[in-house]
Design a protein around this nucleic acid. Structure first.
Length: 581
DNA sequence: GCCGTTTTCGGCCCGACTGTTTTCAGTCG
């Protein structure tokens, strides 16, 4: 039987948590399963491999009981308690409990009272006016239910999350407009946008102002705002023409720090922060810090004060995910995170030779303008297809062209003749070794045969990692955020092979890739792999995308030393395999 | 079900909103 991957294990824990909730288990048990599911999904290593090694209880949120369930899942393909509970509750109840405004209690109530066991049966009962007759429910619940069911049919499920690259311009445009208003004092973006996560559900903005009404009016009248969903004396919720929801909260200046901290989150960070505070007799909320001893609530104008009162150094938002940052902030071991300005070059971009929109000279000129020391030009390779492949002969001509360009540039910047070679299904590259050896730089990626089974895909990638002229792996999992899952691959094994062979792995900065992700990047760096932050630019403007790769690097706790292309050319050049050979 | 700078047992973040009921349960972030 195939080994369950982390996503499958997380789904099994989610399901079991739902089933226990339907069964009326104490809430803490249900929460424990959901916490564990998240921990498994975010883990950078194979949870099943850890289970077999007897080390899985080192993962926060997984204890003895869940270890036993993991063993059962590994050996039999299922969890006995889930089998038992599935016989008790029809699968349809889980769909019902996930409807907005519903939960386990209501799903169970509907099942017990009306025998409802599917969304279809639920709709029939609602249309027949049966829901409103149940004690504890009413006409409003029935109306809302019918509306939700209709919306689901129309929209096909919950609203998708928006990519960070779509959220940031909207957030900055709105925050900028509000800052320009004379009544505004402080205006800050909060939420997952401030944490620079892969995606956001909505945009949170926190402000202080003399005149709340004027600020809300300014927001409502912005050209990009389509409609105002709610508006009060403490803020407003609006929707942009592009469908993005924006929440503005206007708060008292002496609570700004508390509110900004609260709404920056994440949930896991805040829960851990508050639990730790309770152990010291302090209660944290968005309104202040209540001290049990004095009965007084401390209101903080700045976030720094909030963390200081609780005994922590201020924590960069990108780290606030409940992944050890509180402990590090307490004992002074927070990392000095990499910044965009630390980069001295880019090792992955395209020109008109393949599918880029600008010429070699234009890309070089832009890199020079940005003050970089080096730029590797890595057009697609011989088997790329789409009519923009680069034959070996064309690549040889490109080598000459770049030599001439470097002469003209007189050492102001160094352009590297490179390729983004395809990793073929057997793990080989699609140029002859003699040609790869003549290049200054070789990055290689998988662009075909995404459907391979995990073992074969991992072997394919490791064969490439071991190639003597391959310097780095590009976008190693192939994911497209919100649109395409990663192909099946054991990244723990790939990372180990990369560390052993001195092969670098990139964080691709394309905002729908950000690949490798923050979890793999942190693991790779800890394993001793040199990480790259690459733009994969297909135009000169695309170099701006590096901000998203840097964001992923920061969320992976990376310092400048851990990222190879923060180095000067003199220090970077020897890290390439061809320099060591 | 997890976990420990009071604890290996007895706790477990905090508040808003909605809709239903007269003081609260359920859901959500």
């Amino acid at each position: 039987m195939a080994t369950k991957n982390n996503a499958e294990i997380a789904a099994a824990f989610e399901e079991l948590g739902d089933l226990y909730e339907l069964d009326g288990a104490v809430s803490y048990r249900v929460i424990a399963y959901r916490t564990a599911a998240k921990a498994v999904r975010d883990a950078s290593v194979s949870i099943m491999a850890l289970t077999r090694e007897g080390k899985v209880t080192t993962v926060p949120g997984i204890g003895k009981t869940l270890e036993e369930k993991l063993k059962a899942l590994d050996e039999t393909g299922d969890i006995p308690s889930a089998v038992k509970l599935r016989a008790k509750f029809p699968v349809g109840l889980i769909s019902i409990m996930h409807l907005p405004g519903f939960g386990a209690k209501r799903a169970k109530l509907l099942y017990d009272e009306l025998g409802v066991d599917s969304l279809e049966a639920l709709r029939e009962k609602a249309e027949a006016g049966e829901i409103r007759k149940i004690r504890g429910l009413g006409a409003r619940v029935e109306e809302n239910l019918l509306r939700v069911l209709a919306e689901q049919e129309e929209g096909g499920g919950p609203a998708p999350r928006i990519l960070l690259s779509r959220a940031i311009p909207v957030a900055e445009q709105i925050a900028g407009a509000l800052r320009d208003h004379p009544a505004a004092h402080r205006v800050e973006i909060a939420g997952s946008v401030r944490r620079m996560g892969d995606t956001a559900k909505d945009i949170d903005i926190i402000a202080t102002a003399d005149d709340v009404g004027a600020l809300i009016a300014t927001l409502a009248e912005l050209p990009l705002v389509e409609s105002v969903a709610a508006s009060g004396d403490a803020g407003a919720r609006v929707r942009t023409h592009s469908g993005v929801k924006v929440d503005l909260r206007v708060v008292e200046p002496d609570q700004f720090g508390n509110v900004l901290q609260h709404f920056t989150g994440s949930k896991a960070h805040n829960v851990q922060l508050r639990e730790a505070a309770v152990r010291r007799g302090l209660h944290v909320s968005e309104y202040g810090i209540l001290d049990d001893e004095t009965g007084e609530t401390l209101r903080c104008a700045t976030e720094e004060e909030v963390y200081e009162r609780l005994g922590y150094a201020w924590i960069p938002p990108e780290l606030r995910e409940g992944r050890g940052e509180l402990e590090a902030a307490r004992n002074g071991s927070l990392p000095q995170l990499i910044e965009l300005s630390d980069l001295r070059g880019d090792l992955h971009c395209h020109t008109t030779l393949s599918d880029g929109r600008q010429t070699l000279d234009q890309m070089a000129e832009e890199a020079l303008r940005r003050g970089w020391e080096y730029l590797a030009v890595t057009d697609h390779s011989a088997s790329h297809g789409f009519g923009d492949h680069v034959t070996p002969e064309a690549l040889e001509a490109r080598i000459e062209e770049i030599a001439a360009l470097n002469d003209r540039l007189e050492g102001k910047i160094r352009i590297l003749a490179g390729t983004e070679s395809n990793i073929l299904p057997d793990g080989s590259l699609d140029y002859p070794d003699e040609l790869l050896q003549r290049l200054d730089w070789v990055i290689a990626s998988i662009h075909t045969s995404f459907g391979m089974e995990e073992t074969a895909m991992t072997e394919r990638m490791i064969a490439a990692v071991e190639h003597p002229w391959l310097d780095a792996i590009g976008h190693p999992t192939g994911r497209k955020i919100e649109t395409r899952p990663p192909y099946a691959i054991d990244m723990t094994a790939v990372i180990a092979a990369a560390a052993k062979n001195g092969t670098m792995i990139e964080i691709n900065s394309a905002p729908d890739r950000r690949d490798m992700n923050e979890s793999h990047a942190r693991a790779a760096s800890e394993a001793g792999v040199m990480v790259l932050v690459d733009s994969d630019a297909h135009s000169a403007r695309n170099f701006d995308l590096l901000q998203y790769g840097i964001a992923t690097a920061r969320r992976a706790w990376l310092t400048p030393e851990k990222v190879a292309n923060t180095r000067s050319w003199a220090d970077f050049a020897p890290l390439r395999k061809r320099a060591k050979a």
